[in-house]
Amino acid sequence: MSNELLKVENLEVQFKSGSTVTKAVNGVSFTLNRKENIGIVGESGSGKSVTATSLLRLIPSPPGHISGGKILFEGKDLLTLSDKEMRDIRGNDISMIFQDPLTSLNPVFTVGDQIMESIKLHQKVSKKEAKQKAIQMLQLVGIPAPEKRLNMYPHEFSGGMRQRVMIAIALSCNPKLLIADEPTTALDVTVQAQILELMKKLQDEFNTSIIMITHDLGVVWEICHKVLVMYAGNVIEYGTVEEIHDHPMHPYTWGLLDSQITENIEDHEMLTTIPGSPPDLRQEIKGCPFAPRCSYTQDICFSKAPEMVEVKEKHFVACHFQTKENRLNRKERSTHVRAVVKS
């Protein structure tokens, strides 16, 4: 069994509406090994979620369609599978946790029904066995009195509990890959920590790889081995967590890092922001997509799109000025747009 679980090559996803074409994902490539976690980060609209949902071929079609690339899962190209073969993979080999636990559960069925549904979809088990398994899963995700909870409806659960149920559903068939689309965004901070802790614990137990989509870099440092930084449908930086954390290279990644709250931030200091907003993906982008917002731009940035370059081992960057012979120096935080408010 090869160690490589998932290999995505040049994935392209487009949304068509009338005559306009939105290039939501534009040539994304990465590899994921067994038991390894990758974080996909980027701001809203950067194509993180579309990338993740297209791995399961779940983007709404029409208007969306995967217009190019390969998704090799254990060597099989998921894009060539029939609908039936794809259904067998969904929930069984690859499953997904969604952002909002409050709306992810069907309000008219009990929690138990919904956990059992995924078990019964993929395993030939009796109702009784499915129920046993559901109780076991609830126990595993830390829900007390699972026998009683099984017969309750989603509205009787809190947000954190519901996300635990979602994790139970996602892991009930022991998937090899778990795609988590901002699983902690809708939860409050203490619950976020619990859910992350739970995911780490269960990963060890189930030997699952995780694709973690988030805009919270803290989450990435916490559980991921690799990071993919996306901007406007493109991967702009890709490498190991250590590399990206210690030696980030792309000005956009710097911006993301600077906009985080860190422990050495001063009192009343405003957080740094990246000025401007992401480009309109309906229009053809000439040059580097980040150029209009970058504070390091030169002429070439507006005329030629930078290629992905391996600057160090396992560290790729798409920037004209981060090649081996050509290095930018990261500006101090204070030289970015920043305002200090004195009380």
């Binding site: 399961l56 997904m96 969604f98 709306t103 992810s104 559960l105 549904e117 995924s118 979809l121």
Partner: peptide
């Protein structure tokens, strides 16, 4: 979102329609 969740679990259209959409 729960419809998308059900799809992500590999349910067929018929099942999604009669078990999730209609109720």
């Amino acid at each position: 979102e729960y419809i998308e969740v059900t799809r992500s679990l590999g349910a067929k259209h018929g099942r999604i329609i009669f078990h999730h959409v209609l109720p």
